[in-house]
Design a protein around this nucleic acid. Sequence first.
DNA 1: GTCTATAACTTGATAGAC
DNA 2: GTCTATCAAGTTATAGAC
Lengths: 196, 196
Amino acid sequence: MQENEKKNKKQDIYREAAKLFREKGYNAASMRDLAERVQLKASSLYSHIGSKEEILVKICFDNANHFIDGMEKVENMKGGAADKIKALLLLHIRTAIEETTAVTVFNDEWKHLSEPQLSEFVKLRKDYENRFRKIIKKGIDEGELKDLSAEIFLYSLLNSVYWLHNWYRPQGKIKPEQLEHDIVLMLMDGIINVRM
Amino acid sequence: MQENEKKNKKQDIYREAAKLFREKGYNAASMRDLAERVQLKASSLYSHIGSKEEILVKICFDNANHFIDGMEKVENMKGGAADKIKALLLLHIRTAIEETTAVTVFNDEWKHLSEPQLSEFVKLRKDYENRFRKIIKKGIDEGELKDLSAEIFLYSLLNSVYWLHNWYRPQGKIKPEQLEHDIVLMLMDGIINVRM
DNA sequence: GTCTATAACTTGATAGAC
DNA sequence: GTCTATCAAGTTATAGAC
């Protein structure tokens, strides 16, 4: 039972840390704040975790791996560039809804990683973006996508979904299904109403 | 001449502070870091500025006012929703190019403002977003824009341009004119190539 | 595992000589 | 205006009693 309680406490700490990092930013969030939230003294945290940065490292790399796994599935699926881009957008949207706090930390706080994890993280992120870019370029070459800059497509798409967590509230008026539908349609076909 | 030198030094400090806040984040950027960059000792900074936060406040509110001024011009111009949205996108794109560091701090570090400035800043930002939302809603009502969620349009548009500074390099391959052209076209008409 | 006490360090900001 | 010296408060993390 002890082992079980310890695990629950550890999960507690990670979950509350993610929330805290999100609210205040990694540097402004102190171990005393965190301890208070899980009803411990600061020093007791160190019976469960090794360091503050260890928490950040786990959140960042868990999420990076999640997106890279998703990318692998998309690369192996059948379909054209539009299908694959749509699948990637859904991956981002669903993750943002289901793992809001973790995604926030992953997106906003990774820069506070220290070496060598920082370089490793940047490498993973660049790898992900390269694979996304490749899909876009193929779509442009084959005429499925407009002949504009792949770079601009890539980052406009990513920016639209990267910071979803900053405004979307799962408890609000907009249902997840509508969110998915509208964002995908808008990025694919634009906001302009084309009259037939 | 003394007064002139002081002013230059003060500008120096503000400019280097923006860079530093951008690189490290507001909390991780120390006054000792900043002092070193402008070739002073930390204590000497206080002959030119009142506090660290004073710098953040100035950057945030200067930028907020810049965007609100832009919004006012757009509201008073002739044209439909598409024209106005295009004008606002260009405002964001051009500001991101010309004032990269300031926009970064404005976008990413405002949450470290303390009260009452924090509330005041959030109010300005909400005001800006409300006025943007109004333009989008009118466009939907009049059939100029697709009949999808105005909320989703608003934040997908804003997210696409808010974080431009994270990837766009003015010295890189993509010229500002192409950046403006491609982003606007993509957000207006989508990435899908429509064959006639 | 949790606590108190504390080490070792960094932070923003000030006092006062020059 | 710039410096040295310093303060008071905050930081992560550890030592050792229980």
